[in-house]
Write a protein that binds this DNA or RNA. Structure first.
Lengths: 139, 139
DNA sequence: ATATCTGCAAAGACTTTGCAACCTT
DNA sequence: AAGGTTGCAAAGTCTTTGCAGATAT
């Protein structure tokens, strides 16, 4: 088991990440696939699914499960470490946020109930300033 | 619009809630359907899906979306109001928890970024005391 | 009596898997 | 050359919808 099985750099992988960065919001695999086609990039839907999963496991992408069950992906910068998101329900834009208070609250709660191996899901949704400003949104 | 369109009380609806109470954990529609069959209750899978959705909209049930995209339901008591859950990843048992600190933190964060109509998803997962005690789990 | 509810079968949506050809290292 | 990678097609899951018969009020 000395094989490192490192990942290769391919046109598809590069395009997928680029499209996600360009989108600057949480996208589903299918949505991203459509965007790629829009950019003239020829990438199979299967490849999109596989790359997104792989990149998420590597920590290069963040994934959340939407309320309709679809998995959405975004790239918040790989060095960010553990964080959560403030997501606009309207335009999909997201801001990474650190929530030390929540983290410690979780740890405390878990300990209190004797739970171990604690993880948590936590995302905040709302309407961002741009989207909630009807006056200036007439473009 | 004077019609109230009130929901009817049926054998199926009753059985579904009973099964969910009996289970005392977050169940998927299919899982619940299987449990009902085990109890000898004849309820269609479609009905289970529809009832769970309806009861969730009424606030009689709580629903969460698991990381695999399935929707899970549980009954935590209708008078509970807004709350979150501490869920055992192993046995599925869940404890409702109030998280005032998290709520206010969310509100604060949202305000800070100018977001409105804020909502949030927040669930804590872990391994409960029973499940993490290998010594006594031999039954 | 009537509008809701139920359940079967079919359809729909998203995601995964099999496999041969392809491309990075 | 070797093995990860790609993409088409097919399969798999979970969930929703159409519709006719059954049921609660």
């Amino acid at each position: 088991m000395t094989k490192t099985t490192r990942s290769r750099s391919t046109r598809q992988k590069t395009a997928i990440i680029a499209a996600l960065v360009e989108a600057d919001q949480f996208c589903s695999a299918q949505n991203l696939h459509a965007r790629l086609q829009g950019y003239g990039e020829r990438v199979g839907l299967t490849t999109v699914y596989r790359c997104l999963q792989g990149l998420t496991e590597t920590g290069e992408l963040d994934a959340i499960v939407a309320s309709d069950g679809r998995t959405l992906y975004a790239r918040c910068g790989q060095g960010a470490g553990h964080h959560h998101h403030l997501i606009c329900r309207q335009c999909g834009a997201s801001k990474p946020v650190m929530a030390a208070a929540v983290e410690s609250w979780c740890a405390h709660l878990a300990t209190q109930h004797g739970f171990t191996e604690v993880t948590h899901s936590f995302e905040v949704f709302g309407i961002c300033p741009q989207c909630s400003m009807p006056t200036a949104a007439a473009t």
